[in-house]
Amino acid sequence: MDFSTELLIFTLSGFIGYFIVWGITPSLHAPLMSVSNAISGIIILGAIEVLNDSTDACINTIGFIAVVIASINIFGGFAISQKMLQMFKPKETPKDKQQ
């Protein structure tokens, strides 16, 4: 992929992000941070890629550490978001309104 294609993808994705994020209700800004934070752990793909290309023990070690750390970020982040969103969820049920 050449640089201009990459730039094209980057810019258009940025615009999509712009319109989506402005549409998000302020009361859900905390879950937004946590979900987007978890998704940014996608950097793990980078770690996997460098691991795949390497034969060197040193790179393998660093790559492995990166995979572990990124996994903490991803799944820890999703677990927190889950916890948060669960708290936002029950209020939608009519049963709760009757209480």
Partner: peptide, 15 residues
């Protein structure tokens, strides 16, 4: 040169 990283990164950076 990883498309997915670029797209996701741009989305989250914007957020």
């Amino acid at each position: 040169s990883n498309q997915l990283l670029i797209i996701t990164g741009a989305l989250i950076g914007m957020s």
